[in-house]
Write a protein that binds this DNA or RNA. Structure first.
Lengths: 332, 332
DNA sequence: CCATTTAATGCTCATTAGGAGTATAAGGAG
DNA sequence: CTCCTTATACTCCTAATGAGCATTAAATGG
């Protein structure tokens, strides 16, 4: 033993930084120099970081000049077989066979009026560009057609009746079909299913899965080193969390109209909401209070401007916006 | 650079293994040889582990001869200031100044009829021995008296009116009081509050917190290296999860009575449930089906034996036992 | 100034989920 | 046969919530 270190493990800190601008949920991405895939801000955990979260904040600030507000840990990824899981680490480690690399992913929320932070190659990009099958605000997205076709092909080419049946069940569960409603929180499950079906280009470096010719035209822009999986995790977490914690307001400006709030919720959940019921919900929960001003630019009757009532967090155990999508697809 | 490794980070895999036996929720613990504190099964992630979960399973199996079924990732802990966060790692690393150590904690569930696995110094211990303020099945536990007194003292000795007010608000939020109902899921929040208040012996190695003489008699048995925090995290997660996923059945034997199921749910949530409503819930959700047999040892009318209907997971998006505690404390 | 359009806002209705309690059934112990 | 115990079946009531109708307040074009 050299006495320096025993473990061959490097730990990366990766940030899924979310903001919603103009009905479009966005992630902060770093575009590669040489035509590679965009990736999330990240950096290795070092001895100087006293907490994981502190390390993450520092890396993000360094790479994007953005100072984060709300941050929560998402998940720790560590499959050594996963696409690119080791490649980036290998470089940093100086070419030695860095056997192992794990990534601790964080979710961060940025207010809509927060700094644009387009510095240092970082840019906001709509997350549905990466996962177009997750946006059902306008009814079933066009990409679902392709997705279903590809998945059905995958299911049909399974080895044996049982395998085929099991695959079809999983598809039905993840994406919803006749009878079975789609669960908007199962973002990761859907991504993983597509991954297993060989429809995610990021998987093509994976031993176990063969590049599928048909996946070439799969909708959804790939990202670097398994980062799309982290994005899917973040979306799922966020969609669940807004229902029982007032995190939605971490994405809103100081004052906002109820419709703006609703549009933000819709952007995240990817589903249309019933306007009147949404208002009733927000009011009943006493999540907001009027600022006294009104927004004139509505196009119709002016809307009262509201602000978040921070006190609710001290009043009730789990305030949140537990809305559910309208049965009939589309905005209301 | 030596060419061997660049990071000074070691990654541990730690398991909170839960089982419920006879109304008592238990964790699998490893008792120390030399009168130290009990700790959870754990081991370092090595290059031979292809996934974190696989590494965890291997360590648990090696240390306790127990083969795990249901496993999910809980949280990754990495505060370098946290009690014992580095000490254990330092030993393994051979005395070198291992600057950094993080722990990926997992939650595992074991069926009540699973192997006792009392081999290799491992033993099941009731989790409320470590966190007695979490068991409200028989109404407010006696330990709450001490806890409230200590917390109130901590709040009262805060520096400045504002600090004192904020501390009292946090206490009220975490533990619930007049008006504010206690949220049984906020286990970690309660633990962290006690930790900050200097009432958790594990914290006494922490720079920022001074050992408080009054904490000497705090109820609740300490554990090694921050493992009690992981236990708190596990309990909170589990209490939340049984409400929307049928994980409760991962703790039950093949066949069981509805009362046994209810007792298990109560053991986890630490609250009494309304028997008739619990049955209605379980029936309406179609979570179980009768085996045809009956249990005679009930002490009264024999109870139908039931089994879990695995199919529900394929039928509805989020089946679970979303019960809520009876208002009036105590069993019904 | 008035009709029309566009949103905001207010309110009703029906259904469901869930908290609480009453009543009945089916065993064993004495 | 009576009492005790637990299982099981219902009833009642209220709060939450999905859906839709109605009204209000601005802007715009005639």
């Amino acid at each position: 033993m050299t006495g320096v270190v025993s473990s061959n493990v490097t730990v990366d800190l990766t940030a899924v930084i979310v903001s919603v601008r103009d009905r479009m949920p966005c992630v902060l991405e770093i575009d590669p120099e040489a035509g590679g895939r965009p990736h999330l801000p990240w950096g290795p955990l070092g001895p100087e970081h006293h907490t994981l979260e502190a390390g993450l904040r520092e890396w993000v600030e360094r790479q994007t000049r953005l100072s984060l507000g709300y941050v929560e840990q998402l998940y720790t990824f560590g499959d050594s077989s996963r696409a690119g899981a080791t490649s980036a680490a290998a470089e940093r480690v100086g070419g030695a066979r860095a056997a192992r690399n794990i990534s601790v992913a964080y979710l961060a929320l940025v207010h809509a009026d927060g700094a644009l932070a387009s510095v240092s190659d970082a840019a906001w990009r709509g997350w549905y560009e990466h996962l177009p099958w997750e946006d059902w605000r306008g009814g079933e997205p066009k990409s679902m057609r392709t997705v279903r076709d590809r998945l059905e092909y995958w299911a049909a080419t399974g080895d044996g009746d049982e395998v085929r049946a099991r695959r079809r069940t999983r598809i039905r569960l993840a994406f919803g079909e006749n009878g079975m409603p789609r669960d908007e929180e199962r973002v990761l499950e859907r991504y993983e299913l597509l991954y297993e079906a060989g429809l995610i280009p990021e998987a093509w470096y994976d031993d176990a899965l063969h590049p599928s010719a048909q996946a070439a035209s799969m909708p959804g822009r790939p990202m670097g080193t398994d980062h799309r999986r982290m994005l899917a995790t973040a979306i799922g977490r966020l969609r669940g969390k807004i229902k029982y914690r007032p995190v939605l307001f971490e994405l809103m400006p100081q004052s906002f109209t109820l419709l703006a709030l609703q549009r933000t919720a819709e952007a995240l959940t990817g589903a249309g909401l019933h306007k009147q019921n949404f208002r009733r919900l927000v009011y009943n929960q006493q999540l907001v209070e009027p600022t006294g001003d009104v927004e004139q630019e509505t196009g119709g009757r002016p809307a009262k401007l509201m602000r978040f009532r921070r006190e609710v967090e001290l009043e009730r155990p789990s305030p949140g916006v537990r809305m559910s999508a309208t049965r009939r697809a589309g905005l209301v």
